[in-house]
């Protein structure tokens, strides 16, 4: 295979949607659960990201991080630092983060007005 010149070849233009200023909300239940998780230490942040994959094409990714090298928008929501990767901002603007208290399928849930559909488990969307 000839890829010896690939480093000098022009990479294909990757579809990069414009970055938007993200607004998001936390429900009371989600805020309460985050207070339990964070305690009094607010040095960490909630990273709300999107990964490719899942039944519908995109998957939510929630992490508690101290910092990240990924370019992010930093928000302050209900006293919490929330980081949203700039590359995913178009997919996450307007979301509501909720917490569902169920034995099966419980946990943080994201209600996303940008999603045209979601898969059965609710973890991925299109």
């Amino acid at each position: 295979m000839d890829c010896g010149t690939c480093e000098s070849a022009t990479p294909l233009e990757v579809h990069r949607p414009a970055e938007v200023d993200v607004a998001l909300t936390l429900t009371e239940k989600a805020t309460s659960m985050l207070e339990d998780a964070f305690g009094d230490d607010r040095s960490h942040a909630l990273l709300v990201g999107v990964l490719s994959g899942g039944c519908s094409g995109y998957m939510y990714d929630l992490q508690i991080v101290e910092s990240t090298e990924t370019p992010c928008q930093e928000l302050n929501i209900n006293g919490f630092r929330v980081l949203v990767p700039s590359a995913s901002s178009h997919l996450l603007n307007g979301i509501e983060i909720d917490y569902v208290d169920r034995l099966m399928g419980g946990g943080f849930k994201i209600n996303n007005p940008n999603a045209s559909s979601s898969c059965g488990c609710g973890e991925s969307f299109a």
């Binding site: 070849a9 990479p11 490719s52 990767p85």
Partner: peptide
Amino acid sequence: SERILGQPITITDI
């Protein structure tokens, strides 16, 4: 390419 998002991945047509 729509699903690369912020990942450090490039695509080159060879």
